[in-house]
Amino acid sequence: MRNFNNLNDLSKYIGSPAGQQTVMGKKNIKNALREAAILLEKIMYEQLQDYYASYTTVIYERTYGLLNSLRISPIKQVGNELQIMVYFDNESATHPSILGGDPGYTADIINDGWAWKDQSVDIYRFSRYDGFHFVEKSIDIFNTRNKWGFKISKSREN
């Protein structure tokens, strides 16, 4: 049994991954992680729907590959932490260029935007786009609903 000298030490321990597992139990934490991942996936789905609703395509037909590529990973133990990921299936989220160039990872392109090297043609959403930042918006919304106190981070893993 671990001993604590004061409430501050106890509070720090309870806030740590090891303390949370001690207090809640690993099974309850896994259930909470799954619930949180489902919430984040739902929010990201809604944000992508907002992006699709923000304009009508003219030059191409939407496949909705990105919207349908959202996935939730199994929970894994990393050190003394449990982790779960909400991510995009690479195959479904990669889209061929309509101009014959290299395929693009649609999640990055829609989130962060793009710009052609040749800026002689300036057509918004075709030759340049500022990005919709749906990942950051989703994280912000998740954090307002995060009843578990989980920490969330944005990363790009292949």
Rank of each mutant, 00 (worst) to 15 (best):
R156F: 13
F142D: 04
K151N: 10
I139M: 03
I123H: 10
I139Y: 01
I139K: 01
R128S: 10
F126K: 11
D122I: 15
K154I: 09
F132M: 01
V135L: 05
F150C: 07
I123M: 14
K154H: 12
R128A: 11
I123K: 12
W148F: 15
R156P: 00
R128K: 11
I152A: 15
T144V: 08
I139G: 00
V135G: 01
G131W: 08
N143F: 01
F150V: 05
S127W: 02
T144C: 05
I139Q: 01
D130L: 03
W148K: 06
F150Y: 15
K147N: 06
G131T: 15
T144P: 06
Y124D: 07
E136Q: 12
Y129L: 02
F134G: 05
R145Y: 09
I152L: 12
G131F: 04
Y124H: 09
K151T: 12
F150P: 03
D130V: 06
N146K: 06
R156A: 08
N143D: 05
S127C: 03
D130A: 10
V135Q: 02
F134I: 09
R128E: 08
W148G: 00
Y124F: 15
D130S: 11
E136R: 14
R125S: 14
I141L: 14
K137T: 01
F150K: 06
F134D: 01
N146R: 04
G131K: 04
F142Y: 15
D140C: 00
F150L: 10
R145K: 15
D140V: 07
F142R: 03
D140L: 13
K137V: 04
F134S: 01
K154C: 01
I139N: 00
S138T: 08
I139F: 02
K137P: 01
D130T: 13
S138D: 03
G149Y: 09
S153M: 08
R125T: 15
D130R: 13
N143C: 00
R145A: 13
N143W: 00
I141R: 11
R125M: 11
S153T: 14
S153D: 04
D122P: 03
D130C: 02
K137M: 08
E136C: 00
Y129F: 13
D130P: 08
D130G: 11
E136H: 06
S153E: 08
F132D: 02
T144M: 11
H133Y: 13
H133D: 13
W148H: 12
R125G: 06
D130E: 10
